[in-house]
Design a protein around this nucleic acid. Structure first.
Length: 403
RNA sequence: GUGGGAUUAGCUCAGUUGGUUAGAGCAUUGGUUUGUGGUGCCGAGGGUCACGGGUUCGAGCCCCGCAUCCCACCCCA
């Protein structure tokens, strides 16, 4: 038997119902916010991710499905959605066109990691990206949209926010942090010593207990923001307060992707194990120009659908459609014909085997049909079909023309 | 990539110190006082005990390897 590859799942039956229910709900909400669907390729040039997600990130460093194709191109299965959308945005010259462009997407992402609950090698994200809006109102709108989506599917969450600064204040802060790290260099873990060179901000996120204690004394970016970033962060909090979105400020929240600046946020759930981040996002004002576009402010988020799956509260399933069955072999042809006629307007399931009434009722009930319709000898004789509404238990005979 | 646990019917799980033919519930399927479901009763099918080796007279059980899942680390959605 051939099995699926490690960390790659089939989605069917009940899972598929949940999956599409989420996509449909999120799509509907994104459209209400004025976003438009965008589909980008699963395969992109490796350089795209190296330049956007960043060489120092774990994603690029060790988690990419990277290979050389038959045309000798260095390519990757996309590990996240933003890079491709930004590439498309630039390639279609929307950066030069100016104005505001808002997109949403959903689809498979690939990361070569060790799988566990809530972490797969092929997984699915729903995300949105907004280009051309500098205002922090847009950042808040992103957060509120995530909140709307989660609420719509019945998922509780905690929201953590932080500001990562911009080109004004971040470099200065980073220097200060590196100085601090160097003073304590002999006491921190190996990972942090590496991070000092590759991406010093990441040390704040270190899980090593010893390191955590040391970094309590470290300078905090939140206290070193330039006035523009500080104003935006204050405004963001004010907007969230005004819209009754509760949040926690997590000064150690540093997103793992290099392209973020200013607003960073993460939605977490306490009910799904250690892989608790269910949505994450933030502002990335520099990314478009990093990828050779005209400088364009941008902000977005992504949600991990598999992590949401078991939390989604599904709407009550309602009885729907018809079940047709025959009680005599001679009536089978007739109910098959009626099935095809009825399918033009309704969901219809047909049983090809003659059975007694009890069996048909059982079957109709099992598939959640609203009407169980049966033809037996009596009906054959007088040209009718027996119909029972399984919801309100009424039953009646219809002439075949009226059915 | 590192460490730990698990793997027995379609699903959820029992299975004694290693000892005849590996069980249950649910699901599937057949019958049922001969045309009334979601909730009766009786029966049936369904297992290479993940896979590959080893120890033993004998392995679901012990040992080694391997795959997958789960948990933790790392990191992220």
């Amino acid at each position: 038997m051939i099995n699926s590859l490690r960390g790659m799942n089939d989605i069917l039956s009940e899972d598929y119902e949940r999956f599409t229910y989420f996509i449909n709900t999120a799509t509907h909400i994104a459209q209400k916010y004025g976003f438009h669907f965008i589909e980008t390729p699963l395969l992109e040039e490796t350089a795209l991710f190296k330049r956007s997600v960043g060489e120092s990130s774990d994603i690029v460093g060790k988690e990419m499905y990277q290979f050389i194709d038959k045309g000798e191109n260095d390519v990757c299965l996309r590990p996240e959605g933003t890079a491709g959308v930004v590439r498309a945005f630039i390639q279609k010259k929307l950066d030069k066109a100016g104005g505001i462009h808002r997109f949403f997407y959903h689809g498979a992402m690939f990361r070569y990691e060790r799988p566990q609950k809530g972490r797969l090698r092929q997984f699915h994200q729903f995300g949105v990206e907004s280009f051309g809006v500098e205002s922090v109102y847009e950042d808040a709108t992103m957060i509120i949209m995530v909140s709307d989506i989660l609420q719509a599917v019945g998922i509780g969450y905690r929201l953590q926010i932080n500001s990562l600064g911009d080109t004004n204040c971040m470099p200065e802060y980073r220097n200060g942090l590196v100085n601090f790290i160097e003073i304590h260099e002999d006491k921190i873990c190996e990972d942090c010593q590496r991070r000092k060179v590759t991406n010093p901000i990441r040390v704040l996120d270190c899980k090593n207990e010893n390191c955590k204690i040391i970094y309590k004394e470290a300078p905090k970016l939140i206290n070193n923001l330039c006035s523009s970033c500080q104003d935006d962060f204050d405004k963001l909090k004010q907007i969230l307060d005004a819209n009754k979105i509760t949040y926690e400020i997590d000064t150690n929240l540093v997103r793992g992707l290099d392209y973020y600046s200013k607003t960073a946020f993460e939605f977490v759930s306490d009910n799904i194990g250690s892989q608790s981040a269910i949505a994450g996002g933030g502002r990335y004002d520099r990314l478009v120009e990093f990828l050779d576009g005209r400088p364009t402010p941008a902000v977005g988020f992504a949600m991990g659908i598999e992590r949401l799956m078991e939390l989604i509260v599904m709407p009550e399933i309602k009885r729907e459609g018809y079940y047709l069955g025959a009680m005599d072999e001679e009536a089978v042809d007739l109910i098959v014909t009626l099935t095809h006629k009825k399918r033009k307007t309704a969901k219809v399931t047909c049983d090809y085997k003659a059975k007694n009434l009890k069996n048909h009722l059982k079957n109709a009930d099992k598939i959640n049909a609203q009407f169980c319709c049966v033809i037996g000898t009596d009906e054959m004789a007088n040209g009718t079909i027996w119909v029972k509404d399984l919801e309100n238990k009424t039953e009646y005979a219809l002439s075949l023309e009226d059915f």
